[in-house]
Write a protein that binds this DNA or RNA. Structure first.
Lengths: 195, 195
DNA sequence: TGCGTTTTAATACAGTGGTTTTAAAACTCT
DNA sequence: AGAGTTTTAAAACCACTGTATTAAAACGCA
């Protein structure tokens, strides 16, 4: 069965996630990744294939945990409006606690790798669609039980919430300011208030 | 005084704008730019300095025309809500007509160069602030003349509109779809409607 | 005409990129 | 213990990067 791995795969992927997330694909070199993870580049290639494949693994891992926390909130016991609030609050707090201004890995990917790579583009689109679905279903549920105003179609509202979310992620990458982000969400949630 | 330029500076900058806008800073090489503009890299260096300085010129040029069309709309004769509608419609149409999915140069810069470069970061922030100001002033004007609902503070509304704008720009880079973008703006503008 | 200056063209340069190679090390299985 | 396999470490490879250099070309002015 050959010589056993000396490094912990998850540690390496965690380090790679930080780098790719912070600096993006092009600005991150294999040597950067190897140095961060304290392994040799040969080990990286042996374990994950080439740079693009590694990025793919890292992105998919990020997406999995992101969507998991998404499910936790939206499939949880919280009532529709509360779930939405929790979701946006969590994102704002995450942005404020991240001293590296990393923003959202998926949004970053959307901007600087998706346009040149069909596979990553569809991965990004899939995430956006899943989030939009969660938002739409949650809003629709709230409209059904009378806790959310029905004046606007759930589909439109979900798209606006998705758009605001992406906007928050962009702001998080340059100026994560609590008052700005909270102020942004106030009128957003006012849209849901029934009378 | 000396040998005259053989190339048109504006055309070179136009070509560079397209490349940088489409591919980003890191993924664009000096040779790419030289080839696109059909001049030699020495001419590029002679005329604009190094790569970063050229990017700066290109970005500033982009910002200047972008803010100019912004002024045209918001300082124009249109009534507040109409100005806002014009602005967002123009952005949506621009996204739909661009077959290269370039999105917004400033947003792209915000994601992949601003985080590592303080000068570009403040340039990006300045643009965001200027747009937010236009939006806030316009909304406040509408609230003053009774054409925009006063339930939410203009500052909060402006931030939401900015956020939605940035979100639209992200979507424009991966899936510019008219129905999605229009749907997104519908509840947004519903927020302004007085009764 | 010739000098000073600027632009051009082509090439050079040193560094870095992603990736591969080679050989030694560390294990399993027979 | 030996064969087979996988991982590691170090170095090598080569295309490409940003940038500089050199020399020729093209102008204005004395």
């Amino acid at each position: 069965m050959g010589r056993p791995r000396e490094f912990d795969e998850d540690r390496v992927l965690d380090a790679a996630t930080q780098r790719f997330w912070m600096n993006g694909y092009d600005a991150t070199s294999i040597r950067d990744l190897a140095e961060d993870a304290k392994i040799t580049s040969a080990s990286l290639y042996n374990a994950f294939g080439d740079k693009r494949a590694l990025y793919r693994v890292v992105l998919d891992r990020y997406i999995r945990v992101a969507m998991l926390s998404c499910e936790e909130i939206f499939d949880g016991p919280a009532r529709p409006v509360d779930a939405m609030t929790q979701y946006f609050d969590a994102i704002i707090e995450e942005a404020l606690q991240d001293g590296f201004y990393k923003g959202c890995f998926v949004v970053n990917t959307a901007i600087d790798v998706a346009p040149h790579d069909a596979d990553f583009k569809s991965a990004v689109i899939a995430v956006f669609n899943r989030i939009e679905s969660y938002l739409r279903d949650t809003i629709a549920a709230g409209q059904a039980d009378g806790t959310i105003k029905t004046k606007q179609p759930a589909a439109d509202l979900a798209r606006l919430f998705l758009g605001a979310l992406l906007g928050l992620r962009v702001l998080a990458r340059v100026t994560p300011d609590r008052e700005v982000m909270k102020g942004l969400t106030r009128p957003l949630f006012a849209l849901l208030q029934t009378a």
